[in-house]
Design a protein around this nucleic acid. Structure first.
Length: 409
DNA sequence: TCTGGGGTCCTAGGACCC
DNA sequence: TCTGGGGTCCTAGGACCC
């Protein structure tokens, strides 16, 4: 419940906005703007990875592709089987960023209480500005303006909390506005299969099926204590969600990242430790570059491997002193890799820094070594060159053929 | 699965402390 | 040692999201 300035309790007014087929729509508009004649929204098309780099999965699909049964996350290979004439595009992250920002800037005209939940989803808290009766009018205006001014479509969900607003925007698509207020839960949400409920994924759904829980309504009517006993905190959450309960706030203020990581699927499996180390160096350069851009330091380094048999494992270790220095992070990562690697063919390597703190919070060490200061200077010089001439123009010595082939968004 | 890449949060077990 | 109980910190793994 939300209380207004008179102390009266009142419902919050939350809007969830979800761009329809975001990556594909945005890329389609960008192509048109750049002189291409065909609109890839009007043909069976997908945005996908590159099969030759073994990253061939569907990231977004056109509505026509959807009619062939193509789903997000499946392989390009499977998509081609369903629709041999499917057109595949690589997409471009910069383009997505650009249109995501355009949407955000348009929404800022309505409220500054906007949470960017992902690149293509936003929550708006309109409680202070609107009564429930005018919420639908605002939603219609936003939809119209996004269509006309930005050239793509969105689904909009309206409710009194984030969970319900998000569930609402997921109803019929595209270009639709739906409400899901408390008095509509029974009719609109409870008949849906449990897999439709936010946060119920592929591992949990079969477990619930075994308990004869098949719809969101079944889950809502299940004994809460039983769910808590079986699933702990997660059980409490799923019962709440099934009953439309969610008190979380729209997080509109900047939040510093809690971890920063990069990973890469290798074009071929690699078994040679020197090559793996080289890949780690490339990852370390990028991760620490991002870390320094955030003006943050890391306390923990984590290295992950995926084998050719799709087994994932990782090791992490605490640093003696928090740092953003490429060399220090890389040395720690190398130690981790060498202690964990069992010699199998490796498909993917990941590097993540965790337990981040702002650089200003750092306890200044009185005896910062000269060597350390030199390293930090070197990082700074390289960062500046990267900002000036582009990221990929600059690499350190030590990176040979494999490391250089890794490209980042 | 011919199965991406970037995140968040939670749990469980072991080490260690009083 | 026929070995308590509670707390914190650390690490590995796994769930989920877009």
């Amino acid at each position: 419940m939300f209380y207004n300035k008179y102390g009266d309790s009142m419902e919050r007014q939350i809007i969830h906005i979800d761009v329809n087929n975001a990556f594909l729509s945005w890329y389609a508009i960008w192509r048109l703007k750049n002189g291409e004649k065909d609109d890839i929204r009007e043909i069976p098309a997908v945005i996908g990875g590159d099969e030759s780099k073994r990253s061939g999965i569907v990231l977004a699909k056109s509505n026509l592709a959807k009619q062939f049964g193509i789903v997000t996350g499946e392989t390009i290979y499977q998509a081609k089987k369903k629709c041999p004439n499917i057109k595949i595009f690589q997409g471009d992250y910069k383009v997505y960023r650009e249109y995501s920002d355009k949407l955000y800037n348009l929404l800022l005209e309505y409220t500054d209480k906007i949470e960017r939940f992902s690149i293509d989803e936003c929550f708006l808290d309109m409680t202070e500005y609107l009564m429930k009766s005018t919420l639908m009018d605002k939603a219609k205006e936003i939809r119209k303006r996004v269509n006309e001014e930005l050239g793509f479509t969105v689904n909009i969900g309206l409710s009194s909390n984030k969970l319900l607003a998000k569930m609402a925007s997921d109803f019929e698509k595209p270009n639709k506005i739906h409400t899901l207020f408390a008095d509509e839960i029974k009719q609109k949400m409870w008949p849906l299969p449990i897999k439709e409920l936010f946060m119920l994924g592929r591992k949990t759904v079969p477990k619930l099926y075994n308990m004869k829980i098949k719809t969101i309504g079944d889950l809502a009517k299940t004994d809460e204590k039983l769910l808590i006993k079986k699933f702990g905190k997660y059980g409490k959450m799923m019962w709440d969600y099934a009953n439309g309960i969610d008190n979380s706030e729209v997080v509109y203020k900047y939040e510093a990242p809690k971890s920063i990581g990069n990973s890469t699927t290798l074009p071929i499996d690699i078994q040679d430790i020197d090559s793996l180390n080289e890949i780690l160096l490339t990852l370390a350069e990028h991760v620490t570059f991002r870390l320094r851009k955030h003006n943050m330091l890391a306390r923990v380094v984590n290295v992950g491997l995926r084998t050719n048999e799709f087994k994932d494992y990782s090791h992490q270790s605490k640093l003696d002193l928090e740092t953003s220095n490429t060399k220090e992070i890389y040395e720690k990562a190398k130690q981790l890799l060498n202690s964990m690697y069992k010699g199998e063919p490796i498909r993917l390597v990941s590097l993540k820094v965790d337990k981040l703190i702002n650089k200003n919070e750092k306890q200044m060490s009185l005896f910062e070594s000269e060597e350390k200061q030199k390293q930090e200077e070197l990082d700074k010089v390289i960062d500046n060159l990267k900002e000036k001439y582009g990221y990929s123009a600059i690499t350190r010595a030590g990176q040979l053929s494999i490391g250089k082939k890794i490209k980042f968004k």
